[in-house]
Design a protein around this nucleic acid. Structure first.
Length: 308
DNA sequence: AATCGTCACAACCGCCTTTCG
DNA sequence: CCGAAAGGCGGTTGTGACGAT
């Protein structure tokens, strides 16, 4: 489909906004409300493109926006969310009601990214939020079955932390299916996605990986583990109905129904434990993610063969 | 004082999805 | 169902401030 350009450059001003322009925009939006951005500049007497107006309003002029002065707690949360979600700034920003995705994104690039070497998060693996990803979000913030079952774009063959990649892929898939994680419970784990799920104990972790082929030894191949888990494909994930059921009737789904009970292999668990030795991400995030997926896909962990 | 490099932030651009007639 | 318009998102660039040389 051919699109008309969102901004024509004919006589339109670019660059920093002046206080006068800001005031025009504020006055107009306060009077007429948000929306109709393409016609707004003409109606408001601004020599800007509508997109620029929307951007200026959304990120700087809108009442209630908090700017600057990120707290250490916010820093930590951003880092953790980024590890889970990748560059999905809009999703990350949902955890900060008064922050904008734009500011978080800039803050990440200016400050937080530099901390990555310390936390051993590979900065090259932040592909979870690629704009090329194709997802459909319903009004409730969830995804349809069809969308959940879609293949993820194949990752480029680059050297990166496969565990981090795995974590992001899983997080991406979970998020595509059930929407963004709810606020952290304090230890950064994933089970908060599903109210009622309890934090896994170490013994619980040993029950997860039976349906996954396990590494040959402690020096396992990252890609092997990653591929094994992703090979499950989650294509039969029927998250939409279950999620709605869960959200609409929280008592109708029992957390204990998580389909991991009969599995005892711990090789992969030990393998992952060797990789995460910092506080930013721990293997619980992986386990909780996998476990949460298992919660919605009873086939995922219920069979010892590798067919979901 | 002048130049250069770095950093932080604001803004733009292109692509995608959603909405609506 | 189709296509155009609108909205949204993430990547990238532009630019001013500031410090080092």
């Amino acid at each position: 489909m051919r699109r008309t350009p969102s901004c024509t450059s004919d006589g339109l001003k670019k660059g920093a906004w002046t206080p006068e322009e800001d005031q025009k925009l504020i006055s107009y939006v306060q009077k007429h409300g948000e929306g109709g951005w393409r016609s707004l500049p003409q109606n408001a007497g601004l020599q800007r493109c509508g997109k620029s107006c929307r951007f200026r309003w959304t990120n700087y002029l809108k009442p209630g926006i908090k700017r600057g002065d990120f707290t250490p707690e916010e820093d930590e949360t951003i880092i953790k969310l980024h590890a889970q979600l990748g560059n999905r700034w809009a999703t990350i920003a949902q955890h900060f009601p008064r922050r904008t995705d734009q500011e978080i994104k800039n803050y990440w690039h200016a400050h937080l990214k530099k901390r990555l070497p310390k936390t051993r998060i590979d900065p090259t693996m932040t592909t979870g939020g690629s704009s090329s990803s194709s997802t459909t979000v319903t009004a409730g913030g969830t995804k349809t079955d069809t969308e959940c079952a879609k293949q993820q774009p194949s990752e480029p063959k680059t050297q990166r932390s496969a565990t981090a990649l795995l974590l992001n892929k899983l997080a991406t898939r979970v998020t595509q299916c059930v929407g963004p994680p709810r606020p952290f419970n304090g230890n950064g784990t994933f089970f908060h996605l599903f109210p009622g799920c309890t934090a896994p104990q170490s013994s619980d972790n040993n029950n997860i990986t039976d349906s996954l082929t396990t590494p040959e030894s402690g020096n396992a191949n990252d890609e092997g583990v990653l591929n094994d888990i992703m090979a499950c494909e989650f294509s039969s994930l029927s998250c939409f109905d279950e999620l709605n059921n869960w959200q609409n009737n929280n008592e109708s789904v029992v957390p204990g129904a998580i389909q991991v009970a009969n599995h005892t292999d711990s090789t992969t668990v030990n393998y992952h434990e060797g990789l995460w030795d910092d506080d930013a991400i721990d293997d619980h995030m992986i386990f909780d993610t996998v476990r949460s997926l298992g919660f919605y896909d009873s086939n995922l962990f219920s069979s010892s063969d590798d067919s979901p």
